[in-house]
Design a protein around this nucleic acid. Structure first.
Lengths: 148, 148
DNA sequence: TTTCACGTAACATATGAAGTTACATGAAAC
DNA sequence: GTTTCATGTAACTTCATATGTTACGTGAAA
């Protein structure tokens, strides 16, 4: 499959919206993200439904943040996107009759579950405000975000 | 993309080969794995090159194990498969000029790197022999393989 | 009423795993 | 040595999914 970059894209445009210069149109975001306005709107739909952003039609319309950057984590954004698949690998058959395959599934599945849990935990530990601060210059904090 | 199940498949057939009843043909493995002989041969090619299995043509031919199950880990098998992509998500652009996107990439990339490292570490901690033992009945060990 | 921007369906494109067909290669059986 | 068998591999096709695009409906401001 193609690598899923929706989270990357949506974080990018969200943080661009963070500096409060009025509503941002889909086509402007699309240009910044080097993609298509429809792709932006489609991707933002989940965030809107989750209440993280709002949008207005017509003249002067566009997208605005509708949340406290301190209270929203990458995990929240990920969930709002519909929890897209994290791992590119999986078990061949989910409920096999074969004992051998069941054992393989247990071993692999355990590792896959741990990896997914780790990702969600890390996502949950980063707020949009932290990312915004990171952008404003203090990149040194980045290194020990989770090591502290 | 379709979920990659090559590791799952190849472990399945490898462990079936573990009980020493002579060479196993691709079509037999394919039937067991509910797939196609060519897919099996294609997938096994890397394992053969890595020396974990050998194959013979002609009458009485087929595939046999060529390694010590105690010495080969899931990580070795994964690498022999050509280290297929582990994560379904990635950064939209790998080397963006935009500072905002750079910050997003750092945050996401760090998490992705950790997740991949975790998976490889877990894979490295499980030998084929352990899986084979697991199949032979002592499923209780499974739970605390890594918690011990 | 016109213009603008979102909302969304429908379709096109791209990527990569998996499935399939066809045939060459080499080894054992006869 | 010829036949049979199994791998090795190229060259498709199929399938799933993210992404890109076109077209048009909807509602709000000018």
């Amino acid at each position: 499959m193609k690598r899923d970059s929706r989270l990357s894209t949506v974080l990018h445009v969200l943080l661009h919206m963070a500096d409060p210069s009025g509503p941002v149109r889909s086509d402007v975001m699309a240009r910044a993200a080097n993609t298509n306005p429809v792709v932006i709107r489609r991707t933002m739909a989940g965030l809107k439904q989750a209440g993280f952003v709002r949008s207005e039609k017509g003249h002067g319309g566009g997208w605005e943040l509708n949340c406290d950057l301190d209270k929203v984590t990458l995990r929240d954004i990920y969930l709002a996107l519909g929890s897209p698949t994290l791992l590119a690998m999986g078990n061949r058959t989910e409920s096999p009759g074969c004992l051998v395959e069941q054992a393989v599934n247990r071993a692999l599945g355990q590792t896959f579950d741990e990896a997914e849990a780790l990702i969600l935990e890390r996502f949950g530990g980063v707020t949009l405000a932290q990312l915004a601060a990171d952008i404003r210059g203090n990149h040194k904090h980045q290194e020990h975000t989770h090591a502290s």
